[in-house]
Amino acid sequence: MSGPEILKQNVGTLRTKMGAFWAGSRAVFRGYDLHADLRHMDWVELYLFGVTGKRFTPEQMKLLHGILVYTSYPDARLWNNRVAAMAGTARSTPGLAISAGMAVSEASIYGGYPGVRAIDFFLRAQQHVSSGGNLADFVKQEGKIFGYGRPTPETTDERLPWLERLAHELGLDQGPHFRIAKEVERMLTARHARLRMNYAAMTSSLCADMGFTKADFQVFRVPLFVAGMPPCYLEATEKPEGTVFPVPCDGVKYEGPPVRQWRSE
């Protein structure tokens, strides 16, 4: 079927398996009545049901909550919180501030990109190993592996002991993807001490063990840092306008054309 024919079939029609609502009557969420059937879900559980279409055990939900809580830092110096704080000091709205902060959370070095690349690696590595392949050979041929090392002077990630302890307490630290993540860490740190596991590797491998696909994990982690943003925004609005991270002119290193004299005719 050609492109124009496909478009014509969908004019004025939305075909969906996700849900719909009928004003004054009901709302359907993945085949369930939102108010009658899903009203007791907490927000994260509903969000993940929307993402994956799956129900998670109470233990898995506690771990997923922990993943979100343990990286909720209300520090305006962090790249995405800084955006929210700058919006506050410019007197923008909270919706715009937090949306912008979430958008830049997909940074390619220390945001969403490494996590997505990490889960892709673990899913492929586990498939390779389960088919009888050697993990060391897979790591060697992979080249750059996301989820190890940290773009800060510190080599350890302060969140990991807490998250690993929680996974252990819940009995969720023995899955094949997480075991691979630990083994890869041993291989990489043997080469360089700085290549220790970071949050991207631990969270993505734990989520892979809970059945997340690459797409599932990418959407799950969208609000990963969001709880730290409102405090930064609100504190900025309580200070005089423009006083959050002001930059004086002499603080800018300018390397462009020199100052020019403009003459009037």
Rank of each mutant, 00 (worst) to 15 (best):
D37G: 06
D37W: 02
D37T: 07
L38E: 00
L38F: 01
R39I: 03
R39L: 05
H40I: 13
H40R: 12
M41H: 12
M41Q: 12
D42F: 01
W43M: 06
V44E: 05
V44M: 11
E45N: 10
E45Q: 14
L46Y: 02
Y47D: 09
L48C: 05
L48P: 15
F49I: 11
F49C: 09
G50R: 09
G50A: 10
G50Y: 09
G50I: 11
V51W: 02
T52E: 06
T52Q: 08
G53L: 02
G53V: 10
G53N: 07
G53M: 06
G53P: 05
G53A: 00
K54Y: 01
R55V: 08
R55A: 06
R55N: 07
F56Y: 14
T57C: 05
Q60P: 11
M61N: 10
M61G: 07
M61S: 04
K62I: 00
K62V: 10
L63N: 04
L63G: 13
L63Y: 10
L63D: 13
L63C: 06
L64S: 07
L64Y: 13
H65S: 05
H65E: 09
I67N: 05
I67M: 15
L68E: 11
L68N: 13
V69S: 03
V69C: 06
Y70S: 12
T71A: 07
S72N: 07
Y73W: 06
A76E: 14
A76D: 09
A76Q: 07
R77C: 12
R77W: 00
R77P: 01
L78C: 13
N80C: 13
N80S: 12
N80L: 01
N81E: 12
N81D: 09
N81K: 03
N81P: 01
R82N: 11
R82G: 07
A84E: 11
A85F: 07
M86C: 03
A87N: 03
A87G: 00
A87V: 13
G88N: 08
T89S: 10
T89L: 00
A90Y: 06
A90L: 12
A90W: 03
A90T: 00
R91P: 03
R91M: 05
S92K: 06
S92W: 02
T93Y: 11
P94G: 03
G95K: 04
L96E: 08
L96I: 03
L96H: 10
A97F: 00
A97N: 02
I98Q: 02
I98K: 02
A100I: 02
A100T: 13
G101Y: 10
A103F: 10
A103M: 07
V104G: 02
S105C: 13
S105A: 15
S105L: 09
S105P: 06
A107I: 12
A107Q: 06
A107W: 02
S108W: 04
S108D: 15
S108G: 13
Y110R: 14
Y110E: 12
G112D: 01
G112S: 02
G112R: 01
P114M: 04
P114S: 01
P114H: 05
P114N: 01
G115P: 07
V116Y: 09
V116L: 12
R117F: 04
A118D: 04
D120S: 14
D120W: 03
D120N: 09
F121L: 14
F122R: 04
F122T: 10
F122M: 08
